[in-house]
């Protein structure tokens, strides 16, 4: 019994390793890569989650360990939860909005596919920005052009991968992918709007019941 769980855990680990390694293939040949990622099940949600976590860590480490020549942080006002949410929230809203709209546009991908594809598209962000944190401590202000070049390069690469992921996961043409990305962005705004509306309504409602309770409590005591 024990050996079976052990071997299955080992198999899981190997699967995780292989799917994670696949992200490297994905980012250099995105059209092939993203097709096989979902259609051939070459990616896994666990590897995707790992990449998302690494992205969050990169964001935090970037603040903490980048040389002060490039990034100066006022630690008194630094909020780690806010930092995490400022990445996670847009990311999941993107996934949600992507799923909502591509379903309408005859997209082939499921929510899981979209999540895996979007997460894999973040790989260059981690791969480039993480070493740049280290490298930033060895370059001067005048050489900052290199630093900024690599940072923007990683962002552009990611953006391109996002486009490729939408195209391949949903089997869209280029034009349709661009159009649906624009729609997804608008959809994200709508989702955020609804969320804010929802929260403000809930808080109003809660405040109402609290005041109601207080009123009753004052009457009886």
């Amino acid at each position: 019994m024990k050996s079976i769980t052990k071997s299955s855990a080992k198999a899981k680990l190997i699967h995780f390793r292989d799917t994670l390694r696949y992200s490297l293939h994905c980012i250099v040949s995105p059209f092939d890569g993203f097709w096989d990622l979902t259609h051939e099940h070459r990616g896994s949600a666990s590897a995707a989650t790992f990449i998302v976590i690494m992205t969050i860590l990169t964001n935090i480490w970037k603040m903490r360990y980048t040389s002060f020549v490039f990034i100066r942080v006022q630690w008194e006002y630094f909020n780690i939860v806010l930092n995490i949410c400022s990445f996670l929230l847009p990311f999941f809203v993107w996934v949600l909005s992507n799923w909502c709209l591509t379903t309408l546009f005859d997209g082939k991908g499921t929510m899981k596919d979209i999540y895996i594809g979007s997460a894999y598209a973040l790989t260059p962000y981690v791969l480039i920005q993480l070493p740049m944190i280290f490298a930033s401590n060895f370059i001067t202000y005048e050489e900052g052009a290199f630093y900024n070049y690599f940072l923007s390069f990683s962002i552009i690469w990611c953006a391109f991968l996002f486009l490729a992921s939408v195209m391949q996961i949903h089997d869209f043409s280029f034009g349709k992918a661009i159009f649906s990305i624009l729609c997804i962005l608008v959809g994200m705004l709508v989702i955020v709007f609804i969320m804010v509306l929802f929260f403000s309504l809930i808080s109003e409602a809660v405040a109402y019941f609290i005041s109601l309770y207080k009123e009753i409590a004052f009457r009886f005591y």
Binding site: F68, V69, R72, F138, T140, Y141
Partner: peptide, 18 residues
């Protein structure tokens, strides 16, 4: 320089140090 976040002068010093 680092204490007072003077990154330009820090860069000058660091360049020579490096």
């Amino acid at each position: 320089f680092k204490l007072k976040l003077d990154y330009k002068n820090y860069s000058k010093a660091y360049k020579l140090y490096r």
